Amino acid sequence: MHKILITEQIDQRAIDFLSEQGFEISVGTRGKLNTEDALIEALHDCDGAITMLSNPISRRVMESCPNVKVFANYAVGFNNVDVIAAKELGVRVSNTPDVLSEATADIALSLLLGVSRKIVEAESDLRKGKFDGWHPNGYVGVELFGKKAGMIGMGRIGKAIVRRLKGFGITTLYHNRNRIDIQTEQNLDATFTADLDEMLTNIDFLFLSCPLTPETHHIINASRLSKLDPKVIIINTGRGPLIDEAALAESLIDGKLAGAGLDVFEREPEIHPLLLKAPNTLLLPHIGSATRETRFNMAMLCANSVLKILRGENPNLISNLIA
């Protein structure tokens, strides 16, 4: 009987599915398997695992657990996995593309609306009893219609965000490793910009939705923040380290940016203390994919990856394998 480690509780239906296929399932306790040593101990007699972004799937972990044939990462990102080592060692790795694009795009737009219309500040004051009636100068934000967005990363999630932006009457400039096809550009009312610095000088809102790589780490740093107009609102639903959080917080506090909405952070779960003090910020605890539908689909995608690999199915027919 194959044994599967699931490092944290996921949708019970996916666990039941694997159990019904004859697998022995072990579910870890949240936060207890976020080190290499803890993972190695938990995986010592396992054949496969469903892992979180917080679990370091390093070369050492894989070499120390030679029986583990597949790691199904419960995320679209996989910067916690040493993919090069996995390929060298013949270990299969999967992620969860497509199924969380729409939910994450919803959160991106929620962040934009929340920040641009000062919803958090207004709602907080109302609860504190500060609402004394309609005020001509109270909580004045900015309209979305007719504005221009900049998008860094035009993958599945980026496209889903831009599709929503178009519905609000927002046109988009985008910066991506490769230009997307012209028909999709036209459908999304999006224009490719090869020069990121040039794009930053000509937008009202900036969205980050690209993978975290050595090249994109701090792609928005102090220098690039200085190129943005003070009216700009930044939204990050990609990865926290895409932005230099210290520089972002300083820009917000100094009034050099209009606001920021963040669902991801540089050193999760730690939040930069200056961000907590920065004005007109909306900070969420990484809930981009947190819908019942999406979390179920993510769980089942992971479960099916594990099932197919351990049953010896052709890896070339498993579309969400990254190694």
Rank of each mutant, 00 (worst) to 15 (best):
residue 126 L to A: 13
residue 146 G to W: 04
residue 106 D to R: 01
residue 130 K to L: 15
residue 138 G to H: 02
residue 109 L to F: 05
residue 157 I to L: 13
residue 148 K to Q: 14
residue 131 F to W: 15
residue 115 V to G: 08
residue 151 M to H: 09
residue 130 K to S: 12
residue 117 R to D: 08
residue 175 H to E: 09
residue 181 D to E: 11
residue 165 L to V: 08
residue 106 D to I: 02
residue 124 S to D: 10
residue 120 V to R: 13
residue 144 L to I: 11
residue 109 L to V: 07
residue 174 Y to T: 01
residue 129 G to T: 14
residue 126 L to H: 08
residue 102 E to F: 03
residue 116 S to L: 00
residue 180 I to A: 04
residue 125 D to V: 08
residue 182 I to M: 08
residue 146 G to K: 10
residue 108 A to R: 05
residue 166 K to Q: 13
residue 114 G to K: 04
residue 172 T to V: 12
residue 121 E to S: 07
residue 140 V to S: 03
residue 181 D to Q: 01
residue 145 F to Q: 15
residue 134 W to K: 12
residue 122 A to N: 06
residue 120 V to N: 06
residue 167 G to W: 07
residue 110 S to Y: 10
residue 117 R to H: 11
residue 150 G to Q: 04
residue 130 K to C: 14
residue 99 V to E: 01
residue 114 G to T: 06
residue 149 A to M: 08
residue 144 L to M: 14
residue 161 I to F: 08
residue 128 K to W: 02
residue 170 I to T: 08
residue 135 H to P: 10
residue 125 D to S: 10
residue 177 R to Q: 14
residue 170 I to D: 03
residue 112 L to V: 00
residue 127 R to W: 11
residue 136 P to Y: 03
residue 118 K to G: 04
residue 175 H to A: 10
residue 102 E to T: 08
residue 152 I to T: 12
residue 140 V to W: 03
residue 127 R to Q: 12
residue 113 L to F: 15
residue 138 G to V: 06
residue 162 V to I: 14
residue 140 V to G: 00
residue 136 P to H: 04
residue 155 G to T: 09
residue 164 R to W: 12
residue 167 G to N: 05
residue 99 V to C: 07
residue 162 V to F: 03
residue 98 D to E: 09
residue 131 F to A: 05
residue 158 G to T: 14
residue 103 A to P: 04
residue 155 G to P: 13
residue 174 Y to H: 01
residue 165 L to W: 10
residue 129 G to A: 13
residue 171 T to Y: 07
residue 122 A to I: 07
residue 103 A to F: 04
residue 136 P to N: 03
residue 149 A to H: 09
residue 171 T to C: 10
residue 111 L to G: 00
residue 154 M to S: 03
residue 172 T to L: 11
residue 144 L to V: 10
residue 123 E to N: 09
residue 124 S to A: 10
residue 146 G to L: 12
residue 178 N to K: 14
residue 123 E to C: 09
residue 150 G to E: 02
residue 173 L to V: 12
residue 182 I to P: 04
residue 124 S to I: 12
residue 180 I to W: 03
